[in-house]
Design a protein around this nucleic acid. Structure first.
Length: 266
DNA sequence: CGACTCCTGACA
DNA sequence: TGTCAGGAGTCG
């Protein structure tokens, strides 16, 4: 579920809970995560003071006073739970970070696809990551430049975190709908006005979600229908032109769009 | 580019 | 029982 808006919200929650605190113990409760954060690395985190929690794209960087970084990615189903250390843990607890104030930051992740790793000081944890989708440096010019040499359609291009960071499968469809761009358009074929519309559309889709952090609390269903303009709305009327929303598959992922008002060219 | 992989839950 | 899922890396 988590794309940029949800991760931004999660990072704020984590920041409020851990900034300035000292880690007492880190427990890793799942084999696949233990392969990334072994007993030795987990033990080494005890005594570390947390300086801050940053977000870059869909990644979270827990900055430690030693200069090390705890790099966390939620993937499909990860999320934070904050609670008193003495309280029972959520059913899909994978990692427990116990703090010196009696609270715990818990990585809750049913599918156990989340990643967590310690990065040594001076190492860039995310060397390949493109500009953040809501950063001012992400402009139509920059997007056009990044797409120029790619031989892929625009929608899968938006999912490539090296091109732009933070967009996932939902907001890629949403952004293209706002921009009225056909998701199947070859990426280098987009003209400057479409690139500008796309950058605006990306911001609109993400900021709209950022303004509704309640969706991060886990409710779904009816609120989804209101929240999305095209995602998961196959066969339902386009909110602009009433044409039925189409679904296709690109790079193995569902794409939703309106065949009438999303076009390949101006 | 597609196919496959890591996991597990939700749903038909 | 089988299919699908909002992520992303690896491989051919």
């Amino acid at each position: 579920m988590p794309e940029l808006p949800e991760v931004e919200y999660a990072a704020r929650v984590a920041r409020a809970a851990v900034r300035g605190r000292v880690i007492a113990t880190v427990r890793v409760l799942h084999a696949s995560l233990r392969r990334q954060l072994g007993p030795r690395a987990a033990r080494s985190l005890a005594g570390e003071r947390v300086v801050d929690v940053q977000r870059r794209g869909k990644h979270q960087l827990v900055q430690l006073a030693s200069g090390r970084t705890l790099h966390v990615h939620f993937r499909m189903t990860g999320g934070w739970h904050i609670g008193a250390t003495a309280e029972p843990l959520p059913p899909y607890t994978r990692v427990v970070i116990e703090l010196d104030d009696g609270t715990s930051l818990v990585l809750d992740d049913s599918r156990a696809l989340a990643t967590i790793a310690v990065v040594e000081p001076g190492i860039d944890p995310l060397p390949e990551l493109g500009p953040d989708a809501i950063d001012p440096s992400f402009t139509a010019i920059a997007l056009g430049e990044a797409l120029r040499s790619r031989r892929i359609a625009i929608k899968p291009a938006l999912l490539d975190q090296r091109i732009v960071a933070g967009i996932g499968n939902i907001y890629a469809s949403e952004a293209l709908w706002y921009a009225r761009v056909d998701p199947r358009t070859p990426a280098p074929q987009l003209r400057p006005p479409q690139l500008a519309a796309l950058v605006t559309g990306i911001r609109r889709a993400l900021v709209k979600a950022l303004d509704h952090p309640e969706r991060c609390h886990g409710e779904s269903g009816r609120s989804d229908a209101v929240r999305f303009n095209v995602y998961d709305r196959e066969g339902k009327g386009c909110r602009r032109c009433r044409h039925p929303i189409a679904r296709t598959v690109q790079a193995g992922r569902s794409t939703y769009f309106c065949e009438r008002c999303q076009t390949p060219g101006p």
